[in-house]
Amino acid sequence: MRLERLRARAAILRALRGHLDAADYLEVETPLAVPCPGLDVHLAALEVRGLGAPRWLATSPEYQMKRLLVEGLPRIYQIGKCFRRGELGRHHEPEFTMLELYRAHAGAEEVMADTEALVAHAARAVLGGTVLPSGVDVAPPWERITVEDAFRAHAGVDVHDILPDEARFFELLIDRVEPALEARRAPVFLVRWPASMASLARLCPDDARWADRFEAYVGGLELCNGFGELTDPVEQRARFERDLAKRREAGLDVYPLDERFLEALARGMPPSGGNAIGVDRLVMAITGAAHIEEVLAFPQAHL
């Protein structure tokens, strides 16, 4: 079974590359050891020594990939490892594989369409069809539901009434909303997240209370996190400063701010959409694995 899953994993990686190459996405590789890991309060990076300068393993390749967008590559993707300290569980490994893609002159909607097509293609490559072992059919198009509507329908609350209590928000998300999404026979994009959770997403042009951010849930499994990207260097710096202040206040590690990334934004990043897809989770969904360890050659626990 384990070797069977590793074969399926290889077929999925091949299918992902084949589909993206055919869609004119260029595969790139950016360094794993970076000077500025993600500043998000809920991320912790692993430090690397011996490179002559402070380095951490990338929690995500986003800063470097966006710099490539600025330099003039309009469609890029990367399949590589990301590292997040302290994340270990049924759906988490501290070292995991991420497919990150960016598309210039496009928005969240175009990237969601690319994502649906990509996942369906990977499923067909292994299963010969789009129905996963869980019974979920990943054939496009997938439904889009706003966070506001999902919380009203499944948690019986108005998101505005519970924010800014983010802990309460996430508690309801995992205890009420995710189980309801799990019960669906079809994947769904949860779109328009609270502006305070925008991360590197732009705010929705029609309503600044919401961030142009989306996540796909396939049979309750959170498969990706994507953005209509923030391109404003002033706003981006303000968010970084805010995250750093929160990290200091919470007594968390404080990382340097990525000035080269901010310089790139100042030079002008085209309007873009991007998405980060958890490859291990995609393999789980397609092979019907219940635990992330089942789709890894060697999870940390077995090293």
Partner: peptide
């Protein structure tokens, strides 16, 4: 016990 972490959000242990 189970580690749960939605999106880039807060982590929980169920």
């Amino acid at each position: 016990h189970q580690f749960v972490k939605p999106g880039k959000g807060q982590a929980f242990t169920r």
